[in-house]
Design a protein around this nucleic acid. Structure first.
Length: 274
DNA sequence: CTAAGGACCTGTCGGC
DNA sequence: TGCCGACAGGTCCTTA
C-alpha cells in the first residue's frame, strides 16, 4: 500500500491530533510483525509527550524526549487516529493511547510492517543506509549519475533502491519512468545525462503531485481520516495495460512486463526498449 | 562489490 | 456458486 506520498499523507493526518499529547498506555495485540514488536515499548513511551511526527523515506518517526518510535507500514499497514476506545478488529495489532482519549491504531493485514524503538541520538541501522529524500536538495542529477555509473542493473531497480533514493516504490517508479521516456529495463549505466536529468525531475513531480492529492488509493489504502487519496485517477501507466498512452500524439498502448520481480507498465513508443 | 531470488503474511480477484 | 492459484503498494537477507 504505502509509498512515500501515502506515508506523508498519513504523517500529516495524525500529527495535528497527537502532537503535544502524552502516552497513557500501549496495547500490543500481535507482536509478530515483520520484526517482533519490542516487548518494552511501554517502558520507553509511558508518560512521554509526543514532540513531533517526522518522516524519513517511508519510515514514520514519532519523536519523544528519550527517543523515536519508528513505524514502517510495509505493504498493507495503515494508521488511524480514533477517539475514545472503539473495539479493535482483526489485524489491529498495536494501540498507543494518548491523553484526551485519543488513540493511534496500527492496522496491517499482511504484517509486513514493523515497529521499533530508537534511543535519542542513535540511528537505527536500517535508517542509516538510506539515500537522499527525493524531494530534498540532496537528490539531484549529479547524485543519480554517480549512482548509475557503471551499473548494469535495470534503471527501475536502481531508483527503487532505498540506498539510491528513498520512497520511490513500484507505482511511482513506473509513473516517473513513463514521464521521463525511459524504458524500465534500460541498464542504468547506459543512460545519457539528459535522460537521468529528466528522471530526477519526473520522480520529484510525480511524488509531489501524489502528495498534493492525498496519495493513491488502491484496494485498502485510506488516509488517517478515513478518506481516500485521489492520485489513482492521475496514474498514467500503472494498471493500464492495453490502454492508450496518454502522451499527446502518441498512438502506443501500455504494455505490462515483469521486471525484477515487479509489475512494470510502460509505453513501447515513448519508452523504447534499450 | 553487484545483482537477483527468497522470505515474510493475508486478502482479493480472475478463471475454470 | 465454489475452489485454487496468481498476484498485490516493501525491503532485508541470503546466495551466486
Amino acid at each position: 500500500m504505502p509509498e512515500l506520498p501515502e506515508v506523508e499523507t498519513t504523517r500529516r493526518g495524525i500529527a495535528p491530533h497527537l502532537t503535544g499529547r502524552r502516552v497513557e498506555g500501549v496495547v500490543v495485540r500481535q507482536p509478530r510483525l515483520r520484526r517482533p514488536v519490542p516487548p518494552d515499548l511501554a517502558d520507553h513511551l509511558g508518560g512521554q509527550p509526543l514532540q513531533a511526527v517526522d518522516r524519513r523515506g517511508k519510515y514514520l518517526l514519532l519523536c519523544f524526549p528519550p527517543g523515536e518510535l519508528i513505524i514502517h507500514l510495509g505493504m498493507s499497514g495503515s494508521l488511524r487516529v480514533l477517539q475514545d476506545d472503539p473495539p479493535a478488529g482483526p489485524h489491529d495489532h498495536l494501540d498507543l493511547r494518548f491523553d484526551g482519549d485519543r488513540l493511534l491504531r496500527l492496522h496491517d493485514p499482511r504484517r509486513f510492517g514493523w515497529v521499533d524503538w530508537q534511543p535519542r541520538g542513535t540511528t537505527h541501522p536500517w535508517l542509516a543506509r538510506l539515500g537522499p529524500e527525493p524531494l530534498g536538495e540532496d537528490f539531484h542529477d549529479d547524485w543519480l549519475s554517480q549512482q548509475a555509473a557503471g551499473r548494469r542493473r535495470a534503471i527501475k531497480s536502481l531508483v527503487m533502491d532505498s540506498a539510491v533514493v528513498v520512497g520511490v516504490g513500484n507505482i511511482y517508479a513506473n509513473e516517473a519512468l513513463w514521464r521521463a521516456g525511459i524504458h524500465p529495463h534500460h541498464p542504468a549505466g547506459d543512460l545519457a545525462r539528459p535522460a537521468l536529468m529528466r528522471l530526477v525531475g519526473a520522480i520529484r513531480q510525480v511524488l509531489q503531485a501524489a502528495i498534493d492529492q492525498g496519495g493513491t488509493t488502491l484496494r485498502d489504502f485510506t488516509r488517517a481520516d478515513g478518506r481516500p487519496g485521489y492520485f489513482a485517477q492521475s496514474l498514467a501507466v500503472y494498471g493500464r495495460a492495453g490502454q492508450a498512452c496518454l502522451h499527446p500524439g502518441c498512438d502506443g498502448r501500455i504494455e505490462k512486463a515483469v521486471i525484477v520481480q515487479r509489475a512494470s507498465y510502460f509505453c513501447p513508443r515513448c519508452q523504447p526498449p534499450p
